[in-house]
């Protein structure tokens, strides 16, 4: 019997039960995400507040398992996409480097999206304007580990003055992805960077 395996499992279960964050509906119009990325939206979004993630925000329209919109704003050299605590030393976290190319950023996002053992496939990667920069757009699919739901995703990214800005939307490939895609495209097109300070 391996008790060392049991302890982390128990801790995970505990952590999942104590969630202080709450969903708050957003009013239509312009919103500045994490003080760094201004976007215009149509109002049918809720934002998860109280996550203690200064550079990562999650929105949803129909509710979290059905669709999710992730913003990663102003990720600087050496930072990971999300705040990672108590990562064992022998499993280094993938970190952003400002000389990364589009392909490297996709890989960074993939490692974030497959932490739970999900299977991620890049479908398409192409240049695109985003956040006042010559950025990129990628499409992906994922088989979500937890419920084996097949999802589709679209993301826009750009590196602005050495910092990464990334918006990624993901929803089940049946119905929900197509339902929100035009809204997400419009939202991404409206994005502008707010300089620091």
């Amino acid at each position: 019997m391996n008790l060392k395996v049991l302890v982390p499992v128990a801790l995970l279960l505990l952590a999942a039960c104590t969630k202080p964050a709450t969903w708050v509906g957003l009013a239509q119009g312009e919103v500045v995400v994490c003080e760094r990325l201004a976007v215009r939206h149509d109002g049918a979004w809720s934002r998860l507040e109280g996550t203690r993630e200064p550079k990562h925000e999650v929105w949803t329209s129909d509710g979290m398992p059905l669709d999710q919109l992730h913003f990663h704003t102003g990720i600087a050299e050496g930072e990971s996409l999300v705040v990672v605590k108590d990562r064992p030393a022998d499993k280094p976290i993938p970190r952003f480097r400002k000389d990364m190319q589009a392909q490297d950023v996709v890989e960074l996002y993939e490692s974030f999206a497959t932490q739970d053992g999900s299977v991620f496939t890049l479908e398409k990667l192409a240049p695109a304007r985003f956040a006042d920069e010559d950025g990129f757009r990628f499409e992906f699919s994922r088989v979500r580990k937890r419920d084996e739901v097949r999802t589709r995703g679209v993301a826009y990214g750009a590196i602005h003055r050495g910092e990464l800005f990334l918006v990624a939307f993901e929803a089940p490939r049946i119905h929900y992805f197509a339902k929100h895609l035009p809204r997400v495209e419009a939202l991404a097109q409206s994005a502008h960077v707010r300089e620091k300070g």
């Binding site: 019997m1 391996n2 008790l3 395996v5 049991l6 499992v9 053992g117 580990k145």
Partner: peptide, 26 residues
Amino acid sequence: AFAHMVGIIPVAGTLAALGLVAGAFA
């Protein structure tokens, strides 16, 4: 320890569960 282990494997098919089963026979 084994009884405890078997009791807490809730979902089949996850790698974690496979690992727990593997660890059962120490």
